[in-house]
Structure formats: structure tokens, C-alpha cells
């Protein structure tokens, strides 16, 4: 078997994580994330509406992404970034690369699952003709959220989530350093969300958004991998 990445071990780890996650999450508030999912999905539509001011739209988006980035990982992998509680996961016989890949896989599955629930809810609300509800998702022939920037934006959110989870132990303490790290974390997410929106109405905006989100995603993936490699318990 490969010492760095073995597909069988990775598969075994994903199965293990899938089996152990629901038990952790069902009893610790995943339902909150599920309830929030449609709101997050719908916000994609609200953000496009002209009647909302720029500040409101951006503040909402930053809030959503930050909340998502912090909420999901603490539910899906509550212990991985923690000193004592993380020992169980650290001692599972798999490489650090396989563990990182497994976390990334589950983050993607979880967020995709939440979006699917949001979509189903959207379809249901549209079907029952809820007063004032006008097909947020199905406005055009194609699903708007399958736009490339949106997919990359979602991918960026997965990676931000993973980053937040892996660094949770570092940022979640009450020291001045910890507070500064939390602020830096929020600023980083906020900045990365704001920056593409600056190009929103410019012709080159589409590609700038793609480039920025792709670079940010790779950077966060690298940071979280580095953290996993160097983490001690």
C-alpha cells in the first residue's frame, strides 16, 4: 500500500467518517444548519435584487459565508482540530493526506446535501404557491447556482469551512491573540467575498471572480493541509 495515499484506505476512512458523523451531528444541532440552508440558497437571489443597498447585500453575504464556514465544520467534525478530543481521529491508521481528503469529501457532501435540501424546499414552496414566493431558483432555463462563479464560490466556502474546523483549536480561545486571530479569520473571509463583488458590473468581472475564488480555495486547502501535517495533541 502507498505510504502517502491509498485509495482503499481513503475509501475506508470516508465510510468511517460518514458512519460516525451523523451520530455527532444529529444530536448537536445539524437541524439548525438544515433550517438555515434554504435561507442561504435564497440569499443568492436576494443578493441580485436591485432594491437592496450594496452594504446590506454584502453584509448579508459575509454573514452567511462566515456562519456557514464556522457552523458546518463544528457539526461534521467536532473534534478533529481539538487537542485532547482529536486524538481518536489522529490515531486512525491512515495517512494525513487521506484524512485531509476525507474531511474535504465530507465537507463537500454536507454542503451539497444542504443545498439539495434548499433546492427541494424551493421547489416545494413554488409548487404550493406560497404567497409572495416566486421561484427563486428556477428563474431561468438553467439552474442559476450552477454558474461557474457560484460553484467556485461554494467550493471556496467548503474550503473555508475546513480551514475553520482545522484551526478551531487555535482561534477559539479568549486570549488577545485568539481574538485577533478570529478577527483576522473574519476579515479574510469578508475580504475574499467583497473583492469579487467589486467587479460585479464590469465586463472582466466574471473571470476575476473565478480567478480570485480559485486562488483563495487553493490557498485555504494548502493552509488546512499544512495545519493537519503539523498538528500536535
Amino acid at each position: 500500500m502507498s505510504q502517502t495515499f491509498d485509495i482503499k484506505r481513503y475509501g475506508r476512512l470516508v465510510r468511517h467518517d460518514v458512519r460516525s458523523c451523523p451520530r455527532e451531528t444529529l444530536y448537536s444541532g445539524l437541524w439548525m444548519a438544515l433550517a438555515f440552508a434554504p435561507l442561504m440558497v435564497l440569499s443568492r437571489q436576494w443578493l441580485g435584487q436591485e432594491q437592496y443597498g450594496t452594504f446590506y447585500r454584502l453584509a448579508l453575504m459575509v454573514g452567511m459565508v462566515t456562519w456557514w464556514a464556522l457552523m458546518i465544520p463544528t457539526q461534521v467534525y467536532p473534534n478533529v482540530g481539538k487537542k485532547k478530543r482529536g486524538i481518536y481521529f489522529a490515531m486512525l491508521p491512515a495517512t494525513k493526506a487521506e484524512k485531509h481528503a476525507s474531511i474535504a469529501t465530507l465537507m463537500v457532501l454536507t454542503v451539497v446535501g444542504l443545498m439539495a435540501i434548499g433546492l427541494a424546499e424551493d421547489v416545494l414552496l413554488t409548487a404550493v404557491h406560497l404567497p409572495g414566493y416566486t421561484k427563486y431558483f428556477w428563474q431561468s432555463e438553467t439552474l442559476r447556482f450552477l454558474d461557474l462563479p457560484m460553484v467556485l464560490g461554494t467550493l471556496f466556502t467548503f474550503l473555508t469551512a475546513m480551514f475553520g474546523m482545522i484551526w478551531a483549536n487555535t482561534v477559539a480561545n479568549n486570549t488577545l491573540r485568539g481574538i485577533l486571530q478570529v478577527l483576522l479569520f473574519l476579515l479574510m473571509i469578508g475580504g475574499l467575498v467583497f473583492f469579487p463583488l467589486y467587479f460585479d458590473n464590469r465586463p472582466q468581472g466574471y473571470w476575476v471572480v473565478i480567478a480570485v475564488e480559485a486562488v483563495a480555495t487553493l490557498f485555504l486547502a494548502w493552509l488546512s493541509r499544512r495545519r493537519m501535517d503539523r498538528m500536535t495533541y
Binding site: R23, E24, Y27, N79, R85, I87, P93, A94
Partner: peptide, 23 residues
């Protein structure tokens, strides 16, 4: 390095362990 070959040979039971309540 925490290679799988090493981790398969060793088990560590810490003093405090957080167990999944429902398991």
C-alpha cells in the same frame, strides 16, 4: 510521521476520552 503501518501496530487509550453518547 504517523504512517498507517505504525498506527496499525499501536493503540493509545488516553485518560480522558470523549465518547459518542449515542453509540
Amino acid at each position: 510521521d504517523r504512517l498507517p503501518e505504525m498506527l496499525q501496530r499501536i493503540v493509545f487509550l488516553p485518560d480522558e476520552v470523549t465518547l459518542p453518547d449515542n453509540a
